[in-house]
Amino acid sequence: MALARGIGLRLIQAGGLLLAVVVLNFLLIQIAPGDAALVLAGQYGSGDPEFLAQVRADYGLDQSLLVQLGAYLGNVGRLDFGRSFFFNQPVLDLIADRLFATLLLAGTALAFAMVVGVLLGVFTARRPESPVSHGVTVMSLVGYALPVFWTGIMLIILFASKWDLLPVSGMSDLRYKGGRFGRALDTVEHLILPALTLGIIYLAYYSRLARASMLEVLESDYIRTARAKGVPERVVVYKHALRNALIPVATIAGLQFGALFSGAVLVETVFNWPGLGRLAFESILRRDTPTMLGILIASATLVIVANLLTDLVYRLIDPRIRVGGAR
């Protein structure tokens, strides 16, 4: 019962947050210097009087601010994010086309960072003075300080010009003529470097987090009890301790989704990855405002959904939250 109420409350909160994001977007259009119609039409669209008139009508721009806000909310509520004059397509279609590529990239990077990060974290928590531990400490410092776009460029220089090992641009080889399996393999090859670039920053972060969390759990009473009972060390570490040590890691992973998206903008630009991030960059170069704002709303929605899912999982795996409300 408490679980259902907690979830219901979170859903309402998420809905409110989404509404706030849309209102903020509306305010952004208003604070931009110049005519809102010109902003909404984008650089290419503002040269076309017919398109401008269409935009004015769609957003009720000749009426009061409140009516404009109502029109804007109504449009977004119908999933109408406007039209990109440059592509001559609804913004929603543009976003839908590129969503999968970004989710694939971000998901792979996150999975890589979490799995390797947790393994490193567990290892270093058990042997804090080993050379590997010191290596991981240095690595996490380095990972934090690396500009992600530069890491990508360095990997391109190494893998393309020095070793000629992996493809460094795009998501698939256009010349490729093979079966479905071959094509999937081709995509995986294209995915490796961008996902590695994006994952490195988070790897540094997760290994540190997993290590701290593991050190804390290993000192707790129930672990001492398990050891005293004569439970084998392997089982103590990987079954008893790891399970609880993973909770903060999983929580942070969900909350980091927004940051992951920011990184994806840079990584997709460097590797010509055909996702939302590169579309955002290109629409900014073209001053294609509807697309730009549509991506901002879409990505914030993704983050809200990711946070919501994390919260649900968190409630399910941590009985302290499930039973007793907030800790």
């Binding site: 991506i295 901002l296 990505s299």
Partner: peptide, 11 residues
């Protein structure tokens, strides 16, 4: 916090 920071800054 839910607005991806870099994207928001770009806009």
């Amino acid at each position: 916090q839910v607005l991806p920071a870099l994207l928001f800054a770009m806009v």
